[in-house]
Structure formats: C-alpha cells, structure tokens
C-alpha cells in the first residue's frame, strides 16, 4: 500500500512536506479511482452514447444528434413506459410514506418489545428483489396463490392479479413497497427520535389536539427526514428492476414495463444499445429533478 510512505525524516526537508501533503490524496485515491472509473465513466459514456446510433443494424457508430431522443419521445412503447413508471412511483411513494410514518410513530411509541419490532421491520430490506418477486408471485398466483384461496373461501370471485394490467401494476407496487418501506421506517424513526421534547410540552400545555400535534408539530419537525425518505422511496421505485423482471417481466401488455425494464429490453433483447443509453439519461434526469424538488420543498419547510 502506497500510504506507508516515510514521514519520519526531518520536518524541514522539502520531500517530506511533499510526502506529508500527499498523504490525504493517497488515502482517497483508491476510492476516487473506483467511483470515478466506474460510476462517473458510466454516466458520461452513457450520455455520449445517447447521441450516437449503436445497434445491430447499423454499421459503425454514426453520430446522430438528438435522433434517439426524438425517436423515444415519439415512440408509444416508451411513452407508455414513462406513464406507467410515473403511476408506479406515485403509488409506491404514497403507500410507502403512509406505512412508513405509521410504523415509525408506533415503533417510537412502543416501550414493550420495541427493539424486537425495530429489528423485525428491517428484515425485508435484506431480501433480494428476485426473492421478493418469487414470494409475491406465489402469493398472487391464481391457482396456488394464497390471496385467491382466501377470496375463494369467502365465496368471492377469483382475481387474476398477474393477468390483468391494472392488478399487475398493483401487485408490483405492493412487492416494491414491501422491500423499500423498512428503510423508510428507520429514516423517519431517526427523525422523530431527534425531536426536542420541549416543543411538545408547550403545545400540549396550549391544549393542541392530537391531529394538530401530528400535522403542525411532528411532521414539520421531521420534514428534513421526510425529504430524505421521499428521495429514497422515489429513487428506489423509479429504478426498480430486480423485483419487476422476475415478477411480471414487464407484462401483461407492457402494463408493468417501467423505465428500467424498458431500458433493459431495448438494450439487451433488441440490441439497441444507444437507445438504452438514452433511456438511462431520461431516468437520471428524473432522479436529479426529483431530488432537487424535494430538497427545495423540505428545506423551505424547515
């Protein structure tokens, strides 16, 4: 390791000051190398690639300006994917945030077995997306699915969750929320734990109602954490891939072909690499925009 350079030489020598000065750079060099070499490279080359035509039916790699973008935004499959993604993200964020808040408040409130529940709540975070998909597919299948068996026991009509476009979207939202809520809970919990109790004292003395306490005091106070939770929920949902591909494969009828799945299909089953990169740029654009908006809202609320 290059860090163990000599530093024992006399403090006045030029080379030793140079060595001393180089210590922090040497320390962070491997990290920068990996992160810039892989992540920054990917982003930059993806953006560049989106201006070229790179696919199986083209010889070479001609520069095509904005042709890929124009193609995407006039292509019904992409626009469908974009719409579906937005619905999927909105539903996931709303359900995820409500569940996360309810769980976080009650976890905070509980004294008995608090650690037990806290530990329990994080378990889905450890389960891989593929495993989540298999379990949810099993629960929502028509023949072996527990949900349909329960409906059947109550004499209700069977629902073909995975064969119906809207139900399939709903199942993907549930599976996605199952996987991303645990982290949300912990983010919000850490926010609530940091609140100064004096504020509550004062409000209770003033006779504030419980709803008032929740909406006027608790929520505003944890708004920075809400911002982080929202960013986490929407990022995780916008880029959800691991759960969707094994759960529905993007079907039925492209109903769950969200942007990441669409990108994968375009690049790896249709071999249109530059078009895939263009979708990546769109995904990144949404991520950056969303986080800027959230941070603005919750900074000002604070």
């Amino acid at each position: 390791m290059s860090v163990n350079q000599q530093v024992t030489a006399g403090p006045s020598t030029k080379s030793s000051t140079f060595r001393k000065k180089s210590v922090p750079y040497l320390l962070i060099f491997p990290a920068v190398l990996f992160v810039a070499g892989v992540l920054a490279y990917a982003v930059i080359s993806g953006i560049l690639l989106s201006f070229f035509q790179y696919d199986l039916n083209t010889i070479g790699r001609p520069f095509v300006w904005f042709q890929n973008y124009i193609y995407l935004f006039t292509n019904s499959a992409f626009l469908n994917s974009l719409m579906r993604s937005i619905i999927f993200v909105a539903l996931s964020v709303i359900i995820g945030l409500i569940l996360g808040l309810a769980f976080a408040i009650s976890l905070y409130r509980t004294t008995k077995y608090g650690d037990f529940f806290k530990g329990l709540s994080l378990i889905p975070y450890l389960v891989s997306g593929v495993a989540t998909a298999v379990m949810f597919r099993f629960m929502f299948a028509s023949d072996v699915g527990l949900i349909n068996m329960i409906l059947d026991t109550f004499g209700l009509e069977q629902v073909l969750f995975l064969a119906d476009p809207n139900w399939a979207l709903f199942v993907t939202v549930l599976a996605n929320v199952w996987g991303i809520v645990p982290f949300t809970v912990l983010i919000l919990l850490s926010g609530i734990q940091a609140i100064d109790s004096e504020l509550f004292e004062a409000a209770i003395v003033d006779g504030a109602s419980k709803l008032n306490l929740l909406f006027k005091i608790l929520l505003p106070l944890i708004s920075p954490m809400m911002g982080i939770a929202l960013i986490w929920l929407s990022f995780a949902s916008f880029n959800m891939f691991d759960v969707i591909l094994p759960l529905t494969g993007g079907g039925p009828l492209r109903a769950t072909e969200y942007l990441a799945v669409y990108m994968y299909n375009v690049a790896f089953t249709e071999f249109q690499y530059s078009l895939g990169s263009t979708v990546m740029v769109v995904i990144l654009f949404f991520n950056v925009t969303l986080s800027v908006i959230y941070l603005k809202i919750f900074k000002s609320a604070e």
């Binding site: 922090p24 920054a40 993806g46 690639l49 891939f241 990441a260 690499y273 990169s277 979708v279 990144l284």
Partner: peptide, 28 residues
C-alpha cells in the same frame, strides 16, 4: 487539503445514481 470538497462530491454524488440505470454504458 486542496480540492477536498470537489473530491468529496465526486465520491458522494454517485450515491444518487441508481445501479440498474447504469447497465447499458457499463456493459459496453
């Protein structure tokens, strides 16, 4: 040290880049 903030950003900003979206350029 000099450029500390830029380097810190360089390492931290990629946290917001989702891994699934990078597969195409990384693949090439």
């Amino acid at each position: 040290f000099r450029m500390r903030h830029i380097l810190l950003m360089l390492i931290l900003v990629p946290r917001i880049i989702p891994r699934a979206s990078l597969i195409v350029p990384l693949f090439t």
